[in-house]
Amino acid sequence: MTEFLQHVVNGVSLGTIYALIALGYTMVYGVLKLINFAHGDVYMAAAFAGFYIATALDVRDHPTIGKAVVVFLGAMAVAGAMGWAIERFAYRPLRNRPRLATLITAIGISFLLEYGFQLPSLQAQGRTFEEVLRGWGWGVPGWLDALVGALPSTFPPGPTPRFFPEPFTRVDWTVFGGVHVSNYDVVSFLVAVGFMLGLQWIVYRTRFGTAMRAVSFDPRVAGLMGIPVNRVISATFVLGSVLAAVAALLVAGSRPRIDPIMGLMPGLKAFVAAVFGGIGNVPGAMLGGIALGLAEEMVAGYTVSSFRDGIAFAMLILVLILRPEGLLGRVTVEKV
């Protein structure tokens, strides 16, 4: 019984991560009907942003709550800016093209980030950020000097994994006579539930949410009604990327190895979770994430452990055959 409960705790802890990433997937899909395959890589980039900030602040040797807050906010800001930039420069120019073109671009962005982050660092190339920017012909304005000077010359990180310092101290509790739960598990779960409720509130209770739903329903008509379609879509990307950053830091804090392809598998699995729960549906993403985490954990724990990745994709196929709209998805009739 203890073993089973421990598996449940592990599974929920894993599923929470999938859920947090899946929320971002589902939001973007809900508004744009675009599967943003670069989402897992924004998650990775956010982990590295957090790593560089934490290194600069020396979190490893002297962790404080204040520094943890700076690391979280900094990584969220970087991820949000990336989400905005990816949408603005990669997806928006293709918005009125066939949807396949955007999808392929998303895969392209994903590879660009994964392999771009594996390049040798500027330091190894004997250059600094400032020189690179000058080389591109960008004069750095004086007031940005401090910022550019603070950019790490150890970027890109290269394929070597890094050790992420704990942003806040880990505490383990033993409950029910032998089940181990850590504060990271609890915080992650509460954060995920909080974000889910928050998103639900934004989508159904705010003006911005109404605009989002209108854009999702029909972007052209929404535009004609005076809704700033571009701004709504940008904000959706920023929001989704910020969620990915939170997920990344919660994962990196408790499983402290980060590398440039760390977003690949969680990204794919979060996508499965989003489809399982009904893509475009916020509580569905949460439910799908937890269900996938539990399924993986039980399969790995009670049968052959190499099946754990297989189960995620078997679930995807089953859902697509039996209930393509997902557990909580709405059935839509395609009109010809």
């Binding site: 421990q6 598996h7 592990n10 894993l14 499983r255 760390m262 954990e297 790995a300 724990g301 009670y302």
Partner: peptide, 20 residues
């Protein structure tokens, strides 16, 4: 006799089974 894949982040499922 459990297994993992290099690069995995989470080994707790296998470890819980082993612990038992």
């Amino acid at each position: 006799d459990q297994s993992y894949k290099a690069g995995d982040q989470d080994f707790k499922a296998q470890l819980t089974a082993i612990k038992n």
